[in-house]
Structures are given as C-alpha cells and as structure tokens.
C-alpha cells in the first residue's frame, strides 16, 4: 500500500531523485520523495477582465460559486473533471496556471445551455466556457479547435463571396484539419447525391465550384464586414495584451 497522502498530490509535484546528496546526506530514491510547493503566491488580476472582454464572458464577475452550473452540466455528468464552477473561480481570482492545467478539457463544452438556465446570477456559464476556450486559443495555449477552424473556413468564404459553397467548405476544412479529402463516408455521401439529386442541381453545384460566383454588389458589404471584423479582433487582442505584429 503506497502512502495515502501521495494520492492527494499531483504527480508533477512529486520529485524522486536517482542520485542526490544534500549536505552530505544521501537522499536518493523512492524513500526520499520530495514534494514541490503548491502554495498560491499571487493572483493574475487581469485574467477576469481578459475573459470578460471576449464574447460570452461579460458576466463572469457575477459568480458567487453556488455550483448550479456544474451540477446541471451535461459534460460533468460523464467527466467529473469538467467543472465550470471551478474554472470560473480560477479566472475570477486570477489563478491562470491552474486554469491552464485543464486547457485540454475546457473546450469540450457542448453548449447545451443547461447551466445558463440554472444560474441564479445570470453569469451565462456557457458563454464563459466559450470565451475561455477562445482565450486559450488566442493566447496560444491550445491549437485552434476543429469547430473554430470550421467557423473560420465558413465565415471567410461568406465574407469573400456572400455565398456558401458546400464543396469548397468541406475541402478547405479538411485541408486545414489535415484530413484526407477521400474519406469513406464522404465517398458514400457523394455517391448517393449523384444517384438521388436532380441533374440540374448537381450541375449548378459543379458550376458554382468552378466559377465561384459572388453575390451581386457584394464589394461594399464585404468592405464593411472586413472593417468590423478587423476592429473586433484588434479590440480583443488589445484586451488580452497581445500586440499585433502589424502595429509593432
């Protein structure tokens, strides 16, 4: 039976040295396990405002830690490490390192919004989860998630042409997520489309794939959207303390 207390300590805080001598005393091996400090020594006071600057995070400061969000959470029901209440707390008091430990599960929120309904203080925890996932990506702590990449492919195409062309979206999305274009399910889907869709529609789709038509008079709308998107992105990057390379 190992020492029980060790189960309470994170593995990375347990230090065992193969060969170590301190002041003439041999402290090598398992019986001289060291425990790293887990004392919180400071808060990052900007963290809450950074999350609040991203869409969905605006009301995070209202949280009073009742746990309604976690209790109602769909993901928590299958993974107890998924704890919105806890992350909101870490953000509010600025325990950034602690938050980053869970960087690989925070984005798993399925946006069912049960928490939004349960929250007595209108924190909108689902929005906070979205903002936090976004923050992790903007700060470079996590690669862009497939869903963010899809959103980008989708919106870039709408911004460029005013239209959506499904074939290109799928192709571009696969390229950005390094997926092969030929996938079993996709081949099957195309085969059925060819079999069942009217000829005219198939021709239109093919035609659009080649010609990439734009919505008439899209130029002005595109300029306005581009300006707005650029402004929003600059605002968010500034709020997160990220300096734009262009303005450096």
């Amino acid at each position: 039976m190992p020492i029980h207390e060790k189960s309470l300590i994170r593995p990375e805080n347990l230090h065992v040295h193969e060969e170590l001598e301190i002041d003439g005393v041999d402290v090598s091996g398992h019986w001289s396990t060291f425990i790293g400090s887990r004392v919180v020594t400071d808060y990052n006071e900007d963290l809450e405002e950074e999350i609040a600057a991203l869409p969905g995070g605006e009301h995070i400061h209202r949280c009073w830690q009742c746990g309604s969000c976690t209790n109602s959470c769909t993901v928590y029901a299958v993974n107890e490490d998924f704890n919105p209440r806890y992350w909101i707390y870490l953000i509010r008091i600025g325990m950034e390192e602690e938050l980053l430990r869970d960087g690989d599960i925070i984005w798993q929120c399925v946006s069912c919004n049960k928490c939004t309904y349960a929250c007595p203080r209108d924190v909108a925890p689902e929005g906070v989860m979205k903002a936090t996932a976004h923050w992790l990506e903007l700060k470079g702590h996590r690669p862009k998630s497939p869903s963010i990449l899809f959103d980008e492919v989708f919106s870039e195409q709408v911004f460029a042409t005013g239209k959506i062309e499904e074939g290109r979206i799928v192709r571009d999305f696969f390229r950005r997520t390094s997926q092969p274009l030929v996938q079993e399910w996709l081949v099957e889907m195309v085969r059925r489309m060819v079999r069942h869709l009217p000829l005219k529609q198939l021709m239109t789709m093919g035609w659009f794939t080649i010609l990439r038509p734009r919505t008439r008079g899209w130029g002005r709308a595109r300029a306005a959207i581009a300006e707005h998107v650029a402004e929003e992105e600059a605002r968010r990057r500034a709020a997160l303390g990220l300096v734009d390379k262009a303005t450096e």
């Binding site: 887990r38 004392v39 919180v40 020594t41 400071d42 808060y43 830690q65 806890y86 707390y89 870490l90 325990m95 602690e98």
Partner: peptide, 8 residues
C-alpha cells in the same frame, strides 16, 4: 474552493 494554500 480550490483546496490550495495561499500566500498572497
């Protein structure tokens, strides 16, 4: 709430 010692 985070079960951590603090020295602030």
């Amino acid at each position: 709430l985070v079960k951590r010692p603090i020295t602030i």
